[in-house]
């Protein structure tokens, strides 16, 4: 056994984490407030839709996914005070006005014949944008100073990928005609344009590029 008193390097050779990160505390909190707002809107919509879809398998899946997104919003709610935001509601906001319009358009379908539209909005538009915003955050925040956020992102991303796969398989199983392919594509395009305007879950700069003014590199 090695001498226990012999000095060892504080970081093991296999520990390649880095200190620099793209977000300061304030920017991280802002993004997390946007995530919480969006996850809340998603779990509310999924819950509301359960009664409106006649397909039993879809009904059960929406109920299951409703909880997952509620749990994500809870994780973000708990993270906000750790980022110096003692009033989490203050930052629980949509990224911008276009994001509000996106959610309104997402939740518009109600009729029992519109299950494809409901699922397309969630699993082909909203959740893919969550995955990209979360992935950008995970890969660009400080791996040491923001480790608690990264831990939550890892849990949440696992859920998002699982749910995206569930939803995509449901959509593929529901689409049986060329007209339905067109319906799905048209609804996706409508929502995607609104999301483009919004710039993503956390607004413009959700996945880099046009960064918001408070984003600085260290």
């Amino acid at each position: 056994m090695a001498d226990p008193h012999k000095p060892r390097a504080p970081f093991a050779p296999w520990d390649r984490r880095e200190l620099p990160g793209l977000f300061d505390v304030e920017e991280s909190a802002r993004r997390i407030g946007n995530y919480k707002w969006a996850e809340m809107k998603l779990f509310e919509a999924l819950g509301g839709w359960v009664a409106t879809v006649p397909e039993l398998d879809v009904k059960m899946r929406l109920g299951t996914h409703c909880y997952k997104h509620a749990w994500h919003s809870e994780l973000w709610h708990k993270r906000l005070p750790e980022l110096r935001e003692m009033n989490p509601e203050r930052l629980t906001q949509p990224a911008n006005e276009a994001m509000v319009r996106f959610v309104e358009a997402l939740t518009e379908p109600e009729a029992p014949e519109l299950t494809i539209e409901k699922l397309v909005g969630v699993y082909r538009v909203f959740i893919p944008h969550f995955i990209s915003a979360y992935t950008f955050h995970k890969n660009n925040t400080s791996q040491i100073t923001d480790a608690p956020t990264i831990r939550s992102l890892n849990f949440i991303l696992q859920d998002e990928f699982d749910d995206w796969r569930d939803g995509e398989m449901l959509i593929q199983s529901l689409i049986e005609t060329a007209d339905e392919v067109d319906r799905a594509a048209a609804h996706q395009a409508t929502l995607e344009k609104l999301m483009l305007e919004a710039g993503g879950i956390a607004g413009h700069g959700s996945i880099g590029g046009a960064t918001s003014p408070s984003v600085t590199a260290y």
Binding site: E44, L46, G47, G48, A51, L62, G63
Partner: peptide, 11 residues
């Protein structure tokens, strides 16, 4: 019960 709980999330 599933539908009711879901609606309370939304309503």
């Amino acid at each position: 019960a599933l539908e009711g709980a879901g609606r309370t999330c939304f309503d």
